[in-house]
Design a protein around this nucleic acid. Structure first.
Lengths: 343, 343
DNA sequence: CCGCACCTTTGAATCGTTTCATTGGTACGT
DNA sequence: ACGTACCAATGAAACGATTCAAAGGTGCGG
């Protein structure tokens, strides 16, 4: 019942040709007469022959596969980046295989090993913690690596990332442009570079505007619940202490703040209070008042990462490049009175 | 500069042993004297040798890799299923590689081809549209396949899925147990089997309760916005026409309904109206009133899928099994008065 | 001192594909 | 009729790891 797998040899026998001819049909059809080609093709179809990629690679010394290791496939940023990378790779005849490190160093190491043993053309890595040693070792063995959402301080490999300082600046500029002057920044203790950068950008924007003031409020976490606590505290302030614009370090915080200020004090958004988040998660378009947010150019980052990698594969000695994208402002009802919701 | 890749031969030369010995160090360390083992190991470390998986597989005829093709990596259901599958595979010495079909037949086909050429041990597929022909072809060539979130009507392969009828029943039973009798089911035109099943379960529960009535309201889509429209229409009804319990075919619809009824009519949830969703997306814990929902046992499904696949790999002629899980009710404030939100 | 058992190491054969130098044929010009 | 050119097809070598029968070495009992 279970016949052993069909090889190119079996196809050759059935078609009455040499193995080299079958290989030519597969890889250089033009070299083969059409009569032979058809005969071989029908043998292939009849036997259900499937190329053995292992043998192919062994001979070629290289695969047509790119390994992508992300911190969390569940994170929309990474899933849509992965999608874009796949598309871009497909256009270039390569395939992306995805590994999910789940922010775990050990899992990350496992995937790096697996991919290296599979002799992938190169890897796109969104690294956990310190990149240094592991990437160093990879590069020493000639494996092209491009970092994603992280720059390599030592410039040993190319990278694609986002300028969060610019994002923070952009967000607060937008509030200022709408005439807001008493701005609150909501974030966590700036453990994370990302949060610190966004705050730095916010500061910069406020400093450029003479009559504007920035107040920093610390949340316990980057969650809706933590946002609700912060929002509740703000909503209960005396009328004079109320801000007229709030910039939250991510959308979840912003959503929590929105829930609290709408329900506790019945403030109007954006009339009394303009609100802006960061990341533009899917849900932000569907909040009671649709949330203005700052979006990373995810698709572009995915495609660019693949491009940089392919570039390095073709010219291994080419210069490494750190591509830093500016994020993009997505205007919705929470800052722009024109758009109101609930039909 | 760029030296060609290091092979087992290079290691053997440097350690002054035969290639077979190096292979033994890698695969059967016990067969090798410890002196030799150390010498070989240090040669490996010094040269930075990395096994060539292609050669290994070619010889072995099989890989230690499982292919997983999902409809959408961005969907939390699939990403957490993938995570669980990876863990379970790792415990059994295999690695999962992930392909995202994006609900596209062509992409699905591409991944199936790639995985087959890579001679994966087997595949877990959450199929787009009709499974029949493609899976049939795979199985004919002896490739183990387990379907995920879909049963094979013809029982040709094993599968793991969820009983949505039971889920619908469970949801409405929960509403009835809380004393609700005028129940509304919100869903789309029952194109999708899932929605139809959930409704069937809901019907069954209502029929078992003499004094309960079920009304079906059709939404335009399974989105927050569509839910808001439906919720708005319901909220504007005369007091006599109001339901006291609403079961939505997914959480997005339920969130939309919640937004509308809270804001338009100021109904109290759950006192005036109990609300229950389906899928238990992350966000449901963070809505203004936390949403009760029905959750698929995602991790369990991922692990079971891998188990079924490994079982089939070890005993190819074993009987195929259709494993159908019951979903799980996650009680939150939208049906249980005890829990209220907004601090 | 020989034979035997046991352990370590060896090296050739093998997996399936691609490549490429070579062969066999055909057509054409001289 | 012969040489040349070209096209199609051939088949052996190569890729790198694993396997396994065989060889080499050591120690022990008789």
């Amino acid at each position: 019942m279970e016949s052993r797998p069909v090889s190119i040899k079996d196809v050759a026998d059935r078609a009455g040709v040499a193995v080299g001819t079958v290989s030519n049909v597969l890889n250089h059809p033009a070299r083969v007469s059409s009569a032979t080609r058809e005969r071989v093709q029908s043998a292939i179809d009849h036997l259900g022959f499937v190329r053995n990629d292992a043998a192919r690679q062994l001979r070629a010394g290289q695969s047509r596969t790119i390994g992508l290791i992300v911190l969390d496939v569940g994170n929309p940023f990474f899933s849509s980046l992965a999608r874009a990378a796949e598309d871009c790779a497909a256009e270039n005849g390569s395939t992306v295989v995805l590994g999910d490190s789940g922010q775990d160093l050990e899992r990350e190491a496992r995937y790096i090993d697996v991919f290296e043993q599979q002799r992938v053309q190169g890897m796109l890595i969104s690294p956990v913690g310190d990149v240094g040693p592991r990437v160093e070792a990879l590069r020493k063995r000639g494996m092209p690596v491009v970092l994603v959402d992280r720059v390599d301080a030592q410039r040993r490999c190319s990278s694609v990332s986002v300028d969060d300082v610019a994002g923070g600046y952009m967000a607060v500029r937008h509030l200022l442009a709408a005439g807001r002057r008493r701005i609150v920044f909501v974030g966590t203790k700036a453990d994370f570079r990302q949060v610190a950068d966004r705050l730095a950008g916010a500061r910069q924007a406020v400093e450029e505007q003479d009559d504007a003031v920035l107040e920093v409020v610390e949340a316990d976490a980057m969650t809706v619940l933590a946002g609700r606590d912060v929002g509740g505290a703000i909503a209960r302030r005396a009328a004079g202490g109320l801000p007229d614009g709030i910039f939250c370090a991510n959308d979840l915080l912003a959503i929590g703040v929105m829930q609290a200020v709408l329900l506790i004090r019945g403030l109007r958004i954006p009339e009394d209070l303009a609100l802006i988040g960061y990341d533009d998660i899917d849900f932000s378009a569907s909040t009671v008042v649709p949330l203005t947010s700052v979006r990373k150019p995810t698709e572009l980052m995915g495609r660019t990462a693949v491009d940089l990698l392919l570039e390095e594969i073709e010219a291994p000695s080419s210069r490494r490049r750190q591509v830093i994208f500016d994020p993009e402002l997505v205007e919705r009802g929470s800052t722009t009175a024109a758009v109101r919701a609930v039909g």
